[in-house]
């Protein structure tokens, strides 16, 4: 089963990369209100059904993929093997 984990800086956390990109987009003439930069982790899971996969992905996020103090995460299960 494939899964995608999206990790984002939490609201209120200063994101200097996002600010730099926002500035550049505006310089290019785009009307952009805000830009935030996070991280995409594509995973290929070895086994398990959807429920088990989701539970494991939650644990992966809590333990390693995100730092809960500063980042939020979102799990997307892409398809079944």
């Amino acid at each position: 089963m494939r899964a995608t984990v999206l990790v984002r800086p939490k609201p209120g956390i200063l994101d200097p990369q996002g600010e730099a990109v926002l500035g550049s987009l505006r310089q290019l003439g785009f009307a952009v209100e805000d830009a935030r930069i996070g991280r995409v982790v594509d995973l290929e899971l070895a086994n398990g059904g959807r429920e088990q996969a989701r539970a494991e992905l939650e644990r992966m996020c809590e333990q390693l993929l995100a730092n809960p103090l500063i980042e939020s995460y979102e799990i997307e299960l892409v398809g079944e093997a």
């Binding site: 956390i13 200063l14 200097p16 990369q17 730092n67 103090l69 500063i70």
Partner: peptide
């Protein structure tokens, strides 16, 4: 900090 032995987190410098 990542290990939870100290509080807080270290982020990229504001200046990048």
């Amino acid at each position: 900090c990542e290990a939870g032995l100290l509080p807080g987190a270290l982020r990229p410098n504001h200046s990048l």
